[in-house]
Amino acid sequence: MERIQKQMEFLFEIDKIKDVFRQSLVVEGKREENDAEHSWHMALVALTIKEYFKGEVDLEKSLKMILIHDLVEIYAGDTPAFGAVRPDKADEELKAAVKIFSLLPEDQKEYFLNLWIEFEECESNEAKFANVCDRYQGFMQNLTSDGHTWKKFNAPLEMVLKRAEVIKKYTPDLYEKYMLPQFLSYKERGIIK
């Protein structure tokens, strides 16, 4: 019974992710996206663009990373991609990861925490692919909101391209054929500085 109780407490606690709002807008700019929607959309991005990834990837493992990667924001809050750099972000998120996953039974705590760390370190193919999906989903939100976060944070082209480096490196066809032309178009329009 204790195992079930811990699992239920975790599931109730992570429901709070629906109340963590991001800077990205959804539905053509009608409202802010929450972290749960972001993770759901990332999962569908993963299912859709896997063919562009250079290398073998265990899709199930990447999907697990996608589902848990932002749970830390329940405690650590969201850091906008193009906003001010938070020097304490990594430490705060690690503390939050330990706290949220400690609600689980020990074996699941270790498994989820290690998955989260693997995503953050971005060294395995699964983590690389999950990070590609994270960055790509944010890019898509900018396209559906006419560059909302690029405009809001006066994002320069260099910063936008740096954010997309993981996509360029691991899904070069997707980057070259679709993303780069979009970046240049938004730069031409003055939305990306």
Results as ranks from 00 to 15, higher is better:
residue 4 I to G: 12
residue 6 K to C: 15
residue 7 Q to A: 15
residue 7 Q to W: 13
residue 10 F to Y: 15
residue 13 E to T: 08
residue 14 I to M: 15
residue 16 K to W: 07
residue 16 K to Y: 05
residue 24 S to F: 06
residue 24 S to H: 03
residue 25 L to F: 02
residue 28 E to A: 09
residue 30 K to Q: 02
residue 31 R to F: 07
residue 32 E to V: 00
residue 36 A to F: 15
residue 41 H to C: 04
residue 42 M to R: 00
residue 52 Y to F: 13
residue 54 K to Y: 11
residue 54 K to T: 15
residue 58 D to A: 02
residue 60 E to S: 11
residue 65 M to V: 08
residue 66 I to Q: 02
residue 72 V to Q: 08
residue 72 V to G: 06
residue 74 I to Y: 10
residue 77 G to D: 10
residue 84 A to I: 14
residue 84 A to N: 15
residue 87 P to L: 11
residue 92 E to V: 08
residue 95 K to P: 03
residue 96 A to Y: 07
residue 98 V to Q: 15
residue 100 I to K: 03
residue 102 S to Y: 02
residue 108 Q to D: 08
residue 109 K to H: 09
residue 111 Y to P: 02
residue 117 I to Q: 10
residue 121 E to C: 12
residue 121 E to I: 14
residue 121 E to W: 09
residue 124 S to Y: 11
residue 125 N to P: 08
residue 126 E to H: 00
residue 130 A to D: 05
residue 132 V to K: 07
residue 137 Q to F: 06
residue 139 F to P: 01
residue 147 G to P: 04
residue 149 T to N: 01
residue 151 K to Y: 06
residue 154 N to D: 00
residue 158 E to L: 00
residue 159 M to V: 09
residue 163 R to D: 14
residue 164 A to K: 00
residue 165 E to I: 02
residue 165 E to V: 04
residue 167 I to N: 06
residue 168 K to L: 08
residue 175 Y to K: 08
residue 183 F to C: 10
residue 184 L to T: 03
residue 185 S to E: 04
residue 188 E to Q: 11
residue 189 R to F: 03
residue 189 R to I: 02
residue 191 I to D: 04
residue 191 I to Y: 08
residue 192 I to G: 01
residue 193 K to L: 04
